[in-house]
Design a protein around this nucleic acid. Structure first.
Lengths: 332, 332
DNA sequence: ATGAAAGCGCTAACAG
DNA sequence: CTGTTAGCGCTTTCAT
């Protein structure tokens, strides 16, 4: 393996000069620089990044902890993160936790051992104390979720506002019995979307009806199951706001199986705007989460933290919008 | 930052012993080991992985180059890779090329600079010469695709066999005019699936009809567009084999828009068995690609290469199977 | 503008 | 079984 000293010798300079050419080309006289560059090219020299990382104790690598990379919404966020990272000469290490808390904790050692310069969490079950310990020492950004105490930087959307928007859309279409299938209630996002739904009811002069509110877990299957329950009610709902597109699709499947047509007999609004929402029949009306942008924004925020260790925790709330398709009965 | 020498001093041993406790605990007397462990715990010592990587010139990190991480089939493969990597104490660096060849080439420097110990390519446009240069020097595995000259290890399925199976399924249902929408023909996989389709025709005594064969690019939109063309034929097909589920869904959408019912008027078989194929209406009959397993198998193969630099290029062909749902008209 | 040289923290060969 | 010690290849002060 050809190393810096070889390049230096061939160019009749010292390793310091070679290093300068690589890191601060402008601090070296043009002629010298050219000699060095030529020597590098002739020897096909590749700097040893391990030595460099070691010496500078910096890796230009960040860690992303994902609950499930095979889930569209997360893989889109990762796409945004990766893109912005590479643009800024950073690399992305992938930590797929499979929703396993222990695995999440294991990944944290990569931060502690300086294997990475920072970390982005896409939803996480890590306890507050550990999180505080880490954010005090290392750059960390939490994406999509958020916590009450603002000691950690966050990128998210206004779930409550958009939950309200989704439900209000159905109410303004004249529906009086609007059901809600929430995400898992171990999750702040689920509460926010549900609170938004409740806000909309209040604004339309309707009372909360607990029989119309059911807890799912964001998955297709949970949407399917909870809808079956809702359809067995005497006074069954005429509309549904599901806290995820997958659940909305599951719910629609349950409805179809009972001969209930969407949107004619049941209007549905989802949340996320995953790729398949537009392929689905009927096209799903949904709140579009800007997943890729959330990823980019998280990476940008993380870079701020990395550059300036005194950077204060910040919050970025991105805009979403309601995408109206066929499932709510407005278009058709 | 507390380092090895601090631990050593507190435990009254040398750094060598601390190092041994960390890497070969069994080579150290139990009493000594315990002293060291205690010292590590008391000081909350975290080994500096950068120094370790540098010293051992090994990173326990591998690179995955993905055309598009937001695409389900690839994110599933990555999931399998990550899982197996972590199990074997490896980390996964993500390189999302966005189907941009230049970005792919840029990522290769991570290998050349020993930033990673090996690389898995999930489909790639890198030229043969570069690939040969790299495989000669570094552990590399190509997943899902493959090349003619076997100088690189490969994990794939038998696309031709399963393309034949898919088409044969439609033919055995009595269809005589079976259309095919292929993937992009810059891709070996697309040819294989198409050849399988042709094999099936031959076996059923049918001639190739070029009007029934159209080139897509695996996306929903291309399926939609190509189906519109197929439906404008005088003698329109009664069945379709699409080389991806997304294209199958796009094709079904095009059919529905013309009032053509699936499967009654048009039987459809896709390929991949992405998550949404079972949610789709009608449920998509498709060839199930074992994406997660392909990822795991790739990582396992890569580990063989890493452990034994003389390991010969190998090929793993994984099993797939036809999943029969509603879209082919068999089930109802 | 360039060179000399000291180390970054760890590992492993060698010695005992 | 344990200690001593020489680096790994690069960056960066300090001189010149």
């Amino acid at each position: 393996m050809v190393k810096m000293i070889d390049v230096a010798k061939r160019a009749n300079v010292s390793t310091a000069t070679v290093s300068r050419v690589l890191r601060n080309p402008e601090s070296v006289k043009e002629l010298t620089r050219e000699k060095v560059m030529q020597s590098i090219a002739e020897l096909n020299y590749q700097p040893n990044v391990l030595a460099r990382h070691f010496r500078r104790s910096k890796t230009n690598t960040i860690l992303v902890i994902v609950p499930n990379i095979a889930n569209t919404i997360f893989s889109q966020m990762v796409q945004g993160i990766e893109e912005t990272a590479v643009q800024n000469n950073y690399r992305v290490l992938l930590g797929n936790s499979n929703r396993n808390v222990e695995k999440e904790y294991d990944f944290l050692d990569l931060l502690r051992q300086r294997h990475v310069d920072g970390m982005i969490l896409l939803s996480s079950r890590i306890d507050i104390d550990t999180l505080n310990e880490l954010t005090a020492q290392f750059p960390v950004v939490l994406a999509s979720e958020y916590l009450n105490n603002m000691s950690i930087s966050t990128v998210r959307i206004d779930n409550r506002k958009h939950g309200k928007e989704a439900a209000a859309h159905l109410l303004s279409l004249g529906h009086k019995r609007v059901a809600h299938i929430s995400g898992g209630l171990n999750n702040r996002i689920s509460f926010d979307r549900q609170d938004g739904y409740l806000d909309a009811l209040t604004e339309h002069g309707l009372k909360r009806d607990n029989r119309l509110i059911r807890e799912g877990d964001f998955t297709f299957t949970s949407g399917y199951n909870q809808m079956q329950e809702l359809l067995s009610l005497r006074d069954r709902p005429t509309a549904l706001f599901a806290a995820s597109d997958e659940m909305a699709m599951g719910a629609i499947k349950a409805a179809k199986e009972k001969g209930i047509n969407v949107p004619e007999d049941l209007a549905v609004v989802g949340f996320d705007n995953i790729r398949f929402s537009s392929f689905f029949e009927p096209g799903l009306t949904t709140v579009a989460q800007p997943a890729v942008e959330m990823g980019s924004a998280s990476m940008e925020l993380l870079l701020e933290h990395i550059k300036d260790p005194n950077f204060k925790p910040a919050e970025r709330v991105l805009k979403s919008e309601l995408i109206v398709r066929e499932s709510c009965g407005l278009k058709g």
